[in-house]
Simulated scan of single mutants.
Amino acid sequence: MEAWLLTIRDVGERDFIASIASMVKQVKGARLEFDDDASDIPLAGGTHMVVKVDTFNSGSDWLPGMTEAQAGRKTAVLVISDLVTKGATPIASMLSLCVPPDRDAAGVQDMIRGFSQYCVQSGASFVGGDMGLSCETVLTGVGLGTAPSNGIVPRGGTKKGDIIAVTGLFGLTSVAFRILLDGLDAPNPLKAMALAAAYKPELDLTLVRMLAKEGAITASMDSSDGLGITLNTMAAHSQLSFDIEQLPVAQGVSEFAEANNIGLLDLIMRGGEEFRIVLSLPIDKWDKAVSIARRARAELIPIGHAQDGSGVTWKSPKGPITIPMKGYDDFREWS
């Protein structure tokens, strides 16, 4: 197909971003590449401003049963997650909110309240924004944070032999999407946990920052596009292969997969929206990292190691299985 005939869906989010690389100029001294989770700007005294922008669209992101306050909160989570995953301390936030003219005013206030409350809770004061008209409800959040130059953690930086770890178990959001979008059902407490994970995700706000201060982390990325995409992206940026030795499966997910004839690997690797942090850590700093996680009241679960090569492989009991670069794409949804 001729390039000029391609739609944005044909191209896909990640290939499109790669196609505009020449249009983006990195600020001199910045630590993060343009396609990382956030961007950074060097300031005086070795401090960097870390900036993130992200969008919540009612047409693609608003789950059935989600309240206006939860939509606002989710928008805040989108921006705060990437700030803290890069090692930044959130300091401020802004919101652009576009709504149809017949949207009820009280509901719009609830969106702003949900955004503001979570930002303030995370240390990012809500300082203002903008409003406009649109056919759908669109919330675009901006998050600002600061970090020392040596405290910024890129998505590429993993070293051979590093431990690959995650900050929680996976599969709950996949179960929620199957319940809310496909009409499946699940027993409690799995159903309650899954819906909570989808409607009100929680973040580890200080872990990466604390690990970076002690030199106990080499790379990190949030898993909002799916664990499979996250692992593949980090491996590619680090020019290594990731061998996964343990699947981080949340309680009840295996049974849900079996009961509904769904591949467990799909539920774990392709769900997205978990907002767990995926990290690589030097093997000689593992004990220190575990101690830091305990102080941060965060989980730190080892799932594999980085080796020479490329790609991501699960060392399953039945033999090695390649984990493809598949997950959530804003233009193709799940791919």
Rank of each mutant, 00 (worst) to 15 (best):
I262E: 00
L264E: 00
L264N: 01
L265I: 02
L265A: 11
D266H: 04
D266V: 00
D266C: 03
L267S: 09
L267P: 10
L267T: 03
L267H: 08
L267I: 09
I268L: 04
M269R: 06
R270W: 12
R270V: 04
R270H: 14
G271F: 11
G271C: 05
G271E: 05
G272D: 00
G272W: 03
G272R: 00
G272Q: 04
E273A: 14
E273L: 13
E273R: 12
E274V: 07
F275E: 00
F275G: 08
F275Q: 06
F275K: 01
F275H: 06
R276S: 10
I277H: 07
I277D: 13
I277T: 14
V278M: 10
V278D: 03
V278R: 07
L279C: 14
L279M: 12
L279G: 06
S280A: 08
S280I: 12
L281K: 00
L281I: 15
L281S: 02
L281A: 01
L281H: 02
L281G: 04
P282Q: 03
P282D: 09
I283H: 13
I283V: 15
D284Q: 11
D284K: 11
D284Y: 09
D284T: 12
D284C: 10
K285Y: 08
K285V: 13
K285P: 04
K285L: 13
W286N: 03
W286F: 07
D287V: 09
K288W: 04
K288Q: 07
K288E: 14
K288C: 12
A289V: 05
A289L: 05
A289Y: 06
A289Q: 11
V290N: 11
V290G: 08
V290M: 05
V290S: 13
V290P: 03
S291P: 01
I292E: 02
I292A: 03
I292G: 02
I292V: 12
I292D: 06
A293N: 01
A293T: 01
A293H: 06
A293M: 09
R294P: 02
R295D: 13
R295A: 03
A296R: 00
A296Y: 02
R297H: 12
